[in-house]
């Protein structure tokens, strides 16, 4: 395992020079997983018809970090590594891409075989985009949006200050899913025949769907009376209730939560 991490690091050095790295999943027949954990930078993960992970960096400053132009290499020497590369490793068919505060400032595009489980976490990336992936998808973007398209399997997505847009072509029955953001729209598209039990909550927004939702119990919203400046009394909802519902008879639980935003549940 140590050996492989070292190999990953060595390859990461190579990535530095060409901003593109191909790393195979060791066992093409076993389940694959991609873990991306970044501080800065947007991430795009795309499924393609191939067997390796292709990691590309599209920023203007390469993997050199953001402290200006790099020093030229000393005469007769070439760069073989350093502290500012993303740590890329493969262990037991799990490829991990990790970057700290100084590593990446640009955008990262990673292509993996379609059938790969993907987990992406980023702190300040503009967006996390995951396209054409079949597997368990986990996406977490603190300050940007999350876009998941052409997915099949299951999705657990969260953003703090961005919208969460997810479109599934196929849903693995029985998998729990969750789509949440503090500030933004939750926009989810599901296949028309999806069986699910919905738990929806939009504190300061409305919930829309073109599914035939059988509404279940709802915890009552809390309403507070306030005086406006003009002296009128108006009612303000301070806490929304959780609305339960089922589509196609119910199934695994799906959670939709936004504090400031709307919830849209589309039928595909």
């Amino acid at each position: 395992m140590k050996k492989l991490t070292l190999l990953g690091l060595a390859l990461a050095g190579a990535l530095c020079a060409q901003d593109r790295l191909t790393l195979p999943f060791r066992d093409p027949n076993a389940p694959r997983k991609l873990n991306v954990d970044l501080f800065l930078g947007s991430v795009t993960v795309k499924g393609y018809e191939g067997r390796d992970a292709i990691i590309e960096y599209s920023g203007s400053d390469g993997f050199r970090g953001r402290r200006g132009a790099p020093e030229p290499p000393p005469a007769g020497m070439h760069r073989i590594g350093g502290g500012r590369e993303p740590d890329i490793s493969e262990d037991n068919n799990v490829i991990t891409v990790k970057g700290g505060l100084w590593n990446l400032t640009g955008d990262l595009t990673i292509q993996v075989p379609v059938e790969t489980s993907v987990t992406v976490k980023t702190m300040t990336g503009k967006s996390v985009t995951i396209d054409n992936i079949s597997g368990e998808i986990e996406a977490n973007n603190m300050n940007g949006e999350v876009n998941v398209t052409n997915a099949s399997g299951s999705v657990v997505a969260n953003s703090m200050n961005g919208k969460v847009v997810v479109s599934l072509n196929k849903v693995t029955p029985g998998k729990n899913m969750s789509f949440t953001t503090m500030n933004g729209t939750v926009d989810v598209t599901l296949p028309a025949d999806t069986k699910a039990t919905l738990k929806m909550r939009a504190d300061n927004g409305d919930i829309y769907s073109d599914f035939d939702v059988t509404l279940g119990p709802r915890t009552a919203p809390e309403v507070k009376e306030e005086k406006t400046k003009s002296g009128r009394v108006r009612q303000r909802v301070v806490r929304a209730g959780t609305q339960q519902g089922t589509i196609n008879g119910g199934g695994a639980e799906m959670q939709f939560t936004t504090f400031n935003g709307r919830i849209l549940i589309h039928k595909k």
Partner: peptide, 11 residues
């Protein structure tokens, strides 16, 4: 490992 499964555990 999987968040979906942990959600299921919560259920």
């Amino acid at each position: 490992q999987s968040a979906s499964e942990r959600l299921r555990g919560v259920s």
